[in-house]
């Protein structure tokens, strides 16, 4: 039986439907990412799965235990790192870890092997108050506290939000090591570029899962024609692209614009011809240094396509 099984879960706050029939399963020893913007329902889902919130309807099983009926069993076997830093700010690094170990009736020594790699980076600061740590350090301490009772399943709600890119990369490397030790990890993030770090991902928006797949397959399954377009004047280029009849969508992606092409209309002949027409149109609009290239979709392209 899979360690996380969720079927048709609904949750409403007043008039706001936070989750609208979410179903999925997470396999043992995989990193499963829930990827979506703020307000999509990620935290609600995490709270339900960690038994802190009761769903309106639907069922969820954690290692075969029902989230409502067997909440005590589940709380002993999962580790949870909430989105907001929720350790004791006025206790030291070491004291925080001790509190969590004691609550779960264990000691730091007993499961030290699990946190060793991470805790070693914190050890020089072990007498510092948790409130005085930097963002990256707080995040490492919170992970240690979530791991100290040797959970079978880890729930990490936006662990990398607001953390700089170097610390984020290190954090994902730590997660991979934990996964390789057999821990199942459910992790959420608003950063689309972190999707590739997961074994499988679910894209979520407005309380709905748009898709569940491996990151590679999601990108492979993008069926539209997608081009990147550049010129010397990028903002006017964006406006001109949107005016062109065969361009379906046009969005700025850093130093290029990503454009999807409408293949259904009679104006579409072939990729090459359509590209030539587009180039000529842009030249007529006064653009120079025009570059048009077919490209492979990123997770963000896929997200925007699926959420339309």
């Amino acid at each position: 039986m899979n360690p996380i099984i969720v079927s048709d879960v609904y949750k409403k706050y007043g008039k706001v439907q936070a989750l609208e029939g979410v179903s999925f399963e997470v396999e043992k020893g995989e990193i499963f990412g829930i990827i979506g913007p703020d307000g999509a329902g990620k935290t609600t889902l995490f709270r339900i799965l960690t038994t802190l919130l009761i769903p309106d309807s639907g069922e969820a099983l954690i290692d075969g235990h029902h989230v409502v009926n067997h909440y005590k069993t589940i709380r002993n076997m999962v580790g949870y790192m909430p989105g907001r830093f929720s350790l004791y700010q006025d206790l030291s690094v070491e004291e925080n870890l001790k509190v969590f170990a004691t609550i779960f009736d264990t000691t730091i020594q007993e499961n030290y092997h699990l946190i060793k790699d991470i805790y070693q980076q914190l050890e020089p600061f072990k007498t510092r108050r948790a409130g005085a740590l930097s963002g990256g350090m707080k995040q490492k301490l919170a992970l240690c506290c979530a791991l100290i009772h040797k959970p079978a399943i880890l729930f990490l709600d936006e662990p990398t939000t607001g953390v700089d890119p170097v610390s984020r990369k290190e954090f994902w490397e730590m997660l991979k090591k934990l996964r390789d030790q057999g821990i199942t990890i459910l992790v959420s993030t608003p950063y689309m570029d972190e999707a590739s770090m997961c074994d499988r991902i679910a894209l979520i928006q407005g309380g709905n899962f748009l898709k569940i797949e491996t990151p590679t397959n999601i990108r492979e399954q993008f069926k539209k024609i997608l081009w990147s377009v550049q010129s010397s004047r990028m903002f006017p280029l964006l406006k001109d692209l949107r005016k062109y009849h065969i361009v379906k969508t046009s969005f700025a992606f850093g130093d290029t614009h990503h454009v999807t092409i409408d293949q259904s209309g009679e104006d579409y002949v072939s990729d090459q011809l359509t590209m030539d027409y587009l180039r000529r149109y842009l030249e007529d609009k006064g653009h120079t240094e025009i570059m048009i290239q077919p490209i492979k979709a990123t997770i963000e392209d896929c997200f925007m396509e699926l959420s339309h």
């Binding site: 913007p37 608003p190 689309m192 969005f251 700025a252």
Partner: peptide, 19 residues
């Protein structure tokens, strides 16, 4: 931080416009 990809892009368009 934290907004969906299309909203983020609309926001950048406002920045372009200001520039």
């Amino acid at each position: 931080g934290g907004v969906d990809p299309s909203t983020r892009r609309r926001f950048w368009e406002l920045i372009y416009q200001a520039a």
